[in-house]
Amino acid sequence: MLKSFIGGTLLIAAGLVYAQTTAPPSAVPPRLAPEQQESIRKAVGSPVRSISNVMRDAGRNPEQTLAFFAVEPQHTVIEIWPGAGWYTEILAPLLREEGRYIAAHFDPNSPVEFFRTSLAQYQEKLADDPEVYDRVELQVLNYDPDTPIAPPGSADRVLTFRNVHNWLSQGREETAVVFAKMYAALKPGGLLGLVEHRARIGTDLETMIRSGYVTEELVIELAQEAGFELLSRSPVNQNPQDTTQHPEGVWTLPPTLRLGDGNRAQYLAIGESDRMTLLFSKPE
């Protein structure tokens, strides 16, 4: 059964109170049929997944997350900035036979070396296993408003995992461009599924960019400015052990563990970050 909650919620963690932004639902969130949920379960259990990625399921909850986003095998799904392909290992098999999977990755002409290197590694991953990834469609997500990620109104779902802080580091206008592109790509009635590290309410923008944690209030504001309506929230990726107050921001925690051996056991015990899991709709 899908878990979701609408409206205000208090999450008490390590003596801190996290107050979620209250927003009424725009409609009843979709629920998957048992056979569709089983398709997601099989994709999560796919043997093509690397052991290192499977070991992170406890922190990322892919089966519950994709079910909450109501991803169906016949959908056209765009994943924004898939990175090394953690979700690609699940989405490509899930969508391969009946659906369409578009990976809107980094710009190959980006001045950021990390982006170019990550894209090249992702392309190698796809090439190394054509029986699984030969139907993955690679597109570009950059901040040029004239470069779409897909034909307008073509996608059933757009998904993005832990990327909003990266866009904000480039500027509010650049972030707005990304949300506008996601909105444009979706069909009327299509859904945007978004996961992001969650900052405490009242956190300022500079701290968000520095720490990697973003407030739900800002994410919802950005989505609504693009035309989206908030449909639902899920607690599936929340982590009450995460205070969000770390020397190197979210990168202090696993999997990055930027402090190395410094307090390593403490940060491993906390686990991956506390995250919002939001579902938005494009009005019909």
Rank of each mutant, 00 (worst) to 15 (best):
K187S: 05
Y18G: 01
D128H: 11
R210M: 07
V164C: 05
P108S: 08
M1K: 09
P108I: 05
G271C: 09
D144K: 07
E272I: 05
E196V: 03
L141I: 15
A27D: 15
R275S: 13
L192R: 00
A180S: 15
E113V: 15
T160P: 09
A184H: 02
Q36C: 10
I209V: 15
V195Q: 10
L253F: 10
G202I: 04
G212C: 06
R116E: 03
V164L: 04
A103S: 15
E98P: 03
R200M: 12
P145C: 05
Y133Q: 01
E35D: 15
E206G: 11
T244R: 12
D204Y: 03
G262P: 05
V44L: 01
Y101F: 15
V195G: 04
S39T: 11
T9M: 14
Q224R: 12
R162W: 12
S52D: 13
A104H: 08
D129S: 12
E124L: 13
R100M: 04
D57V: 04
V140R: 03
P235H: 07
I80Q: 00
E248S: 11
W81M: 13
Y213F: 15
I209W: 02
R162Y: 13
P108L: 07
H165I: 02
G189E: 04
G171H: 06
E72I: 06
E97D: 15
S39D: 14
G45L: 02
P247W: 07
